[in-house]
Every structure is written in C-alpha cells, then in structure tokens.
Design a binder for these strands. Structure first.
Length: 828
RNA sequence: GGGGAAGUGGCGGAAUUGGCAGACGCGCAGGCCUUAGGAGCCUGUGCCUUCGGGCGUGUGGGUUCGAGUCCCACCUUCCCCA
C-alpha cells in the first residue's frame, strides 16, 4: 500500500492556492457570463427573494458590513443550489444626514460626496464576491427613484393618509433649526453643544396609527418572536376610558380636562390631576400666584428627554397651577398640577392622579403632600395607611354605590355609568404616534406640496414630478436647510390658480425610501410606474429578509404600514412586505461595535492578505450568524489553513489511487462520510448555522485526508467525494470552489449546480458507542452494532471488568436503556 | 426607565433538544521538514490528583436513574428605543 503525501501532489501539479490570482479572475468571469442576472421567472424553478437591508453609503464597507452581507449572500447561494430562482439585489440608501454634514465640513456637494462613496463601495462589494444582480441596483437619491417617493406621497395625500399638523421637534436655538433625534447627544446639539429644547412645529405626518390594529396582527408573517414582541410593545395598545374633569368654573372655552386611564375602577381615588407641561390648557389654568413657578418649571421640563421624563428612577416633580377640577363621579374638587412625568404625546397628555393605586402617583403624592385614598381594598386591609401603591385586584371601598364590588366588575359598571352620563367614553389608546415625515434638511426627497395664499395647500400635479432638488445649494454651518434660502426653488406658481406660491421646503424622512425599495428591485428600470405589479407579486412578500435587529420598530414597522397603505390604494394585493425575517447578530470587537463611528475596520487589507474566500469563511465561522461574533485578528489562520488543505486535497490526482487495491470498507467509509456531511451541511445552511456547516466540512476534509493516506479508495469514489466537498462549500467560498471545479474538468459553473443529495440510511453508522453508566457515572464504553437489543447491551456491559468492579456485591435496582446510546445501571 | 438577547476551557464556539460536556477552529507546548515562512506536517492541551479516581457549563436551591439543557430565586454582561 502506498501512502501518498500531500507534498507529492503539490509538486506533481506545481500549483498553490493563490486567491489573489483566482478571485479577480472569477469575479470578472461571473460578470461577463451574466451568471448573477435574475430573470423574472425561470421554468421549473420557484422564485425566492433573498433580500438584505441595503446600506447607507457611509464611505467604506467595513467588516461589520461583510459579516452581514456575506451571510445573506451565503443564504442566497444556498437557495440557488436548492433549485430556486433567486433574486438577490443590492443598492444604496443614499439620502441622509452624513452627506450633508460632509458638505458643510469639507465643502463638497452632498451629491458628489454620496456618489463618490457609492462608487467606492461598489468596488468593495465586488471584492466580497457577492452574487448580486447589479443591473437591478437602486440608488435612492437618484431622481428616477425619489420621484416615486413623491408619487406615493401624493397618493397618500389624496387618500388622507398624509396630513400636516403641529408636532414636537428638537430645536437648537443657536442653529435655528430642528434636529433629528440622532443629532441630539445627551440633550445637546451635537454640532454646537447648545442644550436642545422641544417645540412645536407644523410638519407632515403619515397616518400609521390608522393601521395600528392591523399592524398588531402578525399572523401572516414568520418573524422572530422578539421582533414581533418589540413591535407589539411599540404600538402599545391599551384599552381604557377617557373621562372628563369639569373646569367650567374658569369660564374657558374648554369646559373640561380629558384624561385617559386604564384603571377607571380607581376613579373614586383621584386626589389630583396632572397635566403634561405641553398640555394646551396649562397656559389658561395658571393662577397669578403660581405663574412664576409654573413657567420656570415648564422651561426646565423642555430640556429633559422623554426617556428621562418617564424613567422610574428619576424623581417625580410637579408644580401647582392653583386651579382645580371636579371629579364627575363624586363631585370632588381636586387640584391641577403640571408634572413632566406626564407626556403630551401619550393618551390625552393629562392623567388622573390616584396615588393609592399607581406607583408614580403614589411617589408624587408623598412628595407634594397630596391625600392618598384607598378605593380598592387589599385583602386583609386594616384600613390603615398604605406603604406603597396597591396595584392588584380587590374590592371597592370609598367608591359610593360601587362599594363591595370586585374591582373587575366595578371597572365595567363605572364605565357604563360614565358613558350613560356623557362624562366620557371607553376608548383605546396607542403609544405609537403618527409617522413624522418632515425633515428640515436638504439631502432628501422634496415633499411635493405648494402653499398658495389663495388656494391653500396644493399638491404638485403628478405630471410635474419629480420635484428636483436644486443643483446649486449653499452649505454653510447655519443648520438651516439650504432649501429655505433658495429663492429659485421656493418660489413657484400655484398649479390651481397660477398665482405666485411657495414650495414646501421640508424633505422626507429616509425611512420613506426603504419602505418600498424591495418592490422597486423587482422592476428597477420601470419609468412608467414605481414597480410593475404583475412582476412584484411573483417576488413579494419577500421570502427571506435579512438585517439587523436595530430596525425592529422603525424601518420594519414603516414598511409594513406602507405595504398596507399601497394595498388599500390598489397597488399591491398582499398584506405584508416581508414574509420571513432573519436577524443576523452584530460583529463586535473587544472594544465594542465595529460599525458606526468608533471602530470602522475596513475589509480590503484582509482581502489582500488572505483572500476573499478566507475572510468569508472566517466571518461565517465565528459563531451562529444570528448571534453575531467577536472579531479577533488571530482567528483568520484557521480558515486560511483549511482552504489551503481543501486546495491540496482537490488537486491530488485520483489516478495515483488507481494502483492501490480497492478496499470495500474504505469505499463504504468515504461514501458514508459524503452522505453524512451532505445532510449536516444542508440542515445547518437552512438554519443559518454557517459556523457548523464549516466545522462539518472541516471534519469531512480531515476524514478525506485520513482516507487517502489509508488507501483502498477507487479514483471515481475519490472524485465524487471531492466534488461533494466543493459543492457544499460553494455558497461560502465561491471563488476557490469555482476554480477547483474547473480544474477538475467540469463545466462552468459550480454555482449552477445543486447541493449533493443524501440517503438517510447511509448517515447512520452500523457500529455505535454505547456508554455504560453506574449510578449516572460513566464506567465503560462499548462498541456494539447499532441494532443491539437491551439484553445484548446488558450482557456486554456485565462482561466489562470496570462495570463488574462497580457492581460487585451490589444489587441492580434499576436499568435504563437508551437505544444506541446509553445503559444506566442503578445499584445500591 | 422600558423592551430584547445571552452567560460553557486561555479564546470563538459545539452538544442529535433530558443521555459520553468541550465537536470544529484559534492560541499555547513539544517534535518534524527546509525555498527560513504570517508556509506545511505530527503529537499534546478543562481543572485537581496520593494515578484508584475526584471536580467541572454565572451563583444558590429543586425535579430526575440521569440536567449545559426543565422549574424557582439571584448575580452579571451585551443590544435596541420615533
């Protein structure tokens, strides 16, 4: 028997694995051949839309991007090799703030900056070897894309889904502008450091709240439970009662304050009312003696963020207005306070204070010495003072005619009484607010609206779209949108009456762009409509959407809303945009996140040193894709060595085996190994466990190397084994497998092949190791046929010296047998 | 504050879902080879040990013949929030 060492094979063919040569070669070849082009349909192949969230063109693709996009590409390639017609597009989410900041800092036009970074990133994407169909690329800042944002906006406006209203914004006094939330760091403007204040401005909104209940229904999507829970919590539906407290004694236009509560059963326990500082009635209810204190309080409250204000750790503060309101149930006159733990944006911006039965109200009442009245008696209550708010169920006390009722029943009876007397009504409240679309920024889609002194707010006619961003804008560090000062842009004529009018200068939130880009990818060059509905229905709902968990409640909720709005406009006939969602984890370094600002680690140098396939393997080997990974510089050696070994094995000349006598046992072993690895790899690919796909393939290569050295294998069996290895590895390492596929004399391309099939019967070993335990401790391991009976195993076990030693003179009280696995003897 | 995820060797992680803990890889140690390399090959590597074995999956309890896996309480870390 000859033992053929790998060095022999290497010198025989004289080649080495050289990623720097083969990777650019195949990337060019794939481009030329159009292998990544996706047709709208292919006979005999079901469509599969594998979409990854497109990137913001921030300048460089860092390894964090690679981690995400390689995983998505592996999935797309896997599905192709499972026989699907796969759509795997890529584009750029190209509008947004960083371009504008770059314009201010470096005196470069946002457009030039953006197209520059896109050009750079296209090259880096190419380096990644991803199987994108670049003919379908989308760049959202192109007028041929954003014109459709405007088109949708007009449709939403017609349908009453877009409206203009006052809403709170972050305002920087120094820069005289609103700031996006991401521009506010620790309560100050990130550019000039001025503390930001909240103020109300007239802005455009989409009525996402109209769809709140439908958005809560997630029966038509297969998404991770945590994401669904996050959306549910975000929407924050609560059912309760709006109840009016009378303030007619002040002779105002408003005769009452409406509060929303989910605990109307506690209404007899109301001892005060708290208004949010922004509540419209605050101004008229301030009594002269309190004026100074209240105004100071409101000014201070404007500086706190909502997260701070609703924190349970923060001290609850408030101030008396000096006014009072009447509780309609018991006619009691209770004081009205202003407190910033009440938000204007939730419920009615006013709450009834029930210290006995609400934690926050309890703390608040203690601090301001307001009475605490128990109206739901705790079990075994002695009538004394409460040490903390009592939140559980109980029986009504101090509640007039409802005394003695269980509070659950009281809740309904009291609600009935309130409705019967017109004091209020049962209602549903949501935490989610309407989607604020307006941004006071240049680098975004202009909102296609015109303000005319005669005709009011007039939509730009569809035939006039797109409303183009002006070419020459001035970018100065004033913070004001350059559009406001662009007379040529702002001044226009009214489409209705033809008189001079002014354009809206707000641009759209960039979540608008990402709400429908998946539709655009299905017919990206359509210049008649945003997408072809007939083609779109063959791809959407997206079969598998992949991206980060950070979009759980923003992008993913907006897209769902958008889809439902389009459905109601008759533009699509399905209810959801993304059927299945998978969240890849985050790649971190020991220092923290790789993406974002702190540590962008470019992939290019790694590719230079190790090659794309090695970087791809390394990233996918770090751990389960869904869990993210921790980057370390040293781990790259593993996959690098492994791919070299793969190269070596695949380059061995099988004819060298021909002189060896074929051993049926060896043939069976190599065949079995092929079936086992095919099963393991396919199952793990399916579940995005790319790390264990790789470890299975590593074990397989180790096994092949052993089998080669042991000899007894026929050349055809070896060829088949290598072919399986290449096909199974192709989704992760597309270049090396393509090269080796060609070198072994097969037709272009391995990426048009299917993954190897397997026979379950051949994945089960016929000899198994059975563990023998005595009282749960391992005392022997037996090699026995897989189909051994319990008696066979017990007999074999008792023949073992160590087992005898541990059972000697003891009685076997119990015997547990797990077929093919374990025998546990309980002795005593 | 609210919501979510997770704790296994020096490190990343694996474990057929209640059945041999540590697969695979990194790192480290020893050896081999020589085109002296960031290359390749072989061997070893959880901890303790009187070499019989004992102990080990964040901590403390519990269920079970048997727990990384299930139950209860606690501790810690990470991620997200118009």
């Amino acid at each position: 028997m000859t033992s053929t060492k790998q060095t022999d094979a290497g010198s025989a063919t004289g080649d080495r694995y050289s990623p720097a040569e083969i990777e650019p070669k195949w990337q060019a070849r794939w481009d030329e051949s159009g292998i990544n082009k996706t047709r709208d349909s292919e006979p005999g192949k079901p469509n599969w839309y594998a979409l990854s969230m497109f990137p913001y063109p921030s300048g460089d693709l860092h390894v964090g991007h690679w981690f995400m996009y390689v995983g998505a590409d592996v999935h797309a390639r896997f599905m192709r090799m499972q026989g699907y017609n796969v759509l795997h597009p890529q584009g750029f989410d190209a509008f947004g703030l960083p371009a504008e900041n770059a314009a201010i800092e470096r005196d470069i036009h946002p457009r030039d900056w953006t197209y520059g970074t896109i050009e750079n990133m296209r090259g880096q994407f190419r380096l990644m070897g991803a199987s994108y169909d670049w003919d379908r690329e989308i760049v959202t800042c192109n007028p041929d894309y954003y014109r459709w944002n405007q088109y949708f906006f007009l449709k939403f406006f017609e349908k009453g889904l877009a409206y203009r209203a006052e809403g709170p914004v972050n305002w920087c006094e120094t820069d005289q502008t609103t700031l996006a939330n991401e521009q506010v760091r620790d309560g100050v403007c990130e550019r000039c450091g001025t503390p930001i204040v909240r103020r109300n401005m007239t802005q455009w909104f989409f009525r996402i709240t109209d769809y709140a209940d439908e958005l809560l229904d997630m029966s038509k999507i297969e998404w991770p439970e945590n994401i669904k829970t996050m959306q549910t919590n975000w929407i924050g539906k609560s059912t309760g009662v709006d109840i009016n407290f009378d303030i007619s004694e002040y002779g105002l236009e408003e005769k009452h304050i409406t509060t929303f509560t989910t605990r109307i059963d506690t209404v007899y326990g109301v001892t005060f009312i708290v208004l949010a500082p922004e509540h419209p009635l605050v101004e008229s209810l301030i009594q002269p003696a309190q004026e100074k204190a209240v105004r100071a309080y409101i000014a201070a409250a404007g500086k706190a963020s909502e997260i701070e204000r609703t924190s349970t750790e923060r001290e609850k503060t408030g101030v008396h207005t000096g006014s009072h309101a009447l509780n309609p149930l018991n006619g009691e006159r209770v004081p009205i306070l202003v407190g910033d733990y009440v938000l204007s944006t939730y419920g009615r911006g006013a709450v009834m204070g029930v210290p006995a039965h609400d934690e926050r109200d309890f703390v608040f009442a203690r601090k301001y010495d307001l009475p605490v009245r128990v109206v739901i008696a705790p079990r075994d209550w002695d009538g004394g003072e409460l040490k903390e708010a009592y939140l559980s169920a109980g029986v009504h006390v101090n509640s007039g005619e409802f005394d003695g009722l269980p509070n659950r029943e009281g809740m309904e009876k009291i609600s009935d009484k309130i409705e019967a007397n017109n004091w209020g009504s049962r209602t549903v409240s949501y935490k989610m607010r309407d989607w604020l679309i307006s941004r006071q920024r240049y680098w975004g889609t202009p909102i296609p609206m015109i303000y005319c002194d005669h005709c009011g707010t007039v939509p730009v006619p569809e035939s006039d779209l797109p409303v183009l961003l002006p070419e020459h804008a001035e970018f100065k560090p004033t913070g004001r949108s350059p559009l406001i000062d662009d007379a040529e842009f702002v001044n226009t004529t009214c489409p209705d009456c033809g008189k001079p009018a002014k354009r809206e200068t707000d641009t759209m939130d960039t979540f608008m762009d990402s709400s429908w880009y998946h539709l655009r990818f299905t017919s990206p060059k359509n210049d008649k409509e945003p997408f072809d509905p007939e083609i779109a229905r063959n791809w959407v709902p997206v079969h598998r959407y992949m991206g980060g968990v950070e979009h759980a409640v923003m992008h993913l909720l907006y897209s769902r809303f958008f889809n439902k709005a389009l459905r109601d406009l008759g533009m699509v006939d399905f209810d959801e945009p993304y059927a299945r969602l998978f969240n890849q984890g985050m790649l971190i370094t020991e220092g923290g996140k790789i993406s974002k600002r702190n540590r962008p680690m470019p992939a290019d140098p790694l590719v230079d040193r190790f090659g794309t396939d090695t970087v791809r393997c390394y990233l996918m080997f770090l751990g389960p894709w869904g869990d993210g990974g921790v980057w370390s510089d040293e781990g790259m050696n593993g996959p690098s060595r492994w791919l070299n070994r793969v190269w070596d094995l695949a380059r061995r000349d099988p004819e060298r085996l021909a002189s060896v006598t074929v051993d049926p046992k060896a043939e069976e072993a190599i065949n079995r190994a092929g079936h086992i690895v095919s099963k393991r790899a396919a199952e793990d690919y399916e579940q995005f466990k790319f790390n264990t796909v790789i470890s299975a393939l590593m074990e397989y290569t180790n096994e092949l190397a052993r089998l080669w050295d042991a000899g007894g294998i026929s050349p055809p069996a070896w060829r088949e084994a290598i072919e399986k290895l290449l096909r199974l590895l192709a989704p992760i390492a597309p270049h090396i497998t393509e090269e080796l596929w060609e070198k072994s004399g097969r037709d272009f391309s391995i990426h048009n092949e299917l993954l190897p099939d397997w026979d379950d019967a051949l994945t089960i070993a016929d000899l198994v190791t059975i563990v023998v335990q005595i009282n749960g401790k391992v005392r022997a391991k037996l090699e026995l046929p897989a189909d051994s009976s319990e008696e066979d195993v017990a007999t074999a076990a008792m023949a073992d010296r160590n087992v005898q030693a541990h059972t000697e003179g003891k009685q076997i009280r119990k015997r547990i047998y797990v077929p093919g696995r374990l025998l546990n003897l309980v002795v005593g």
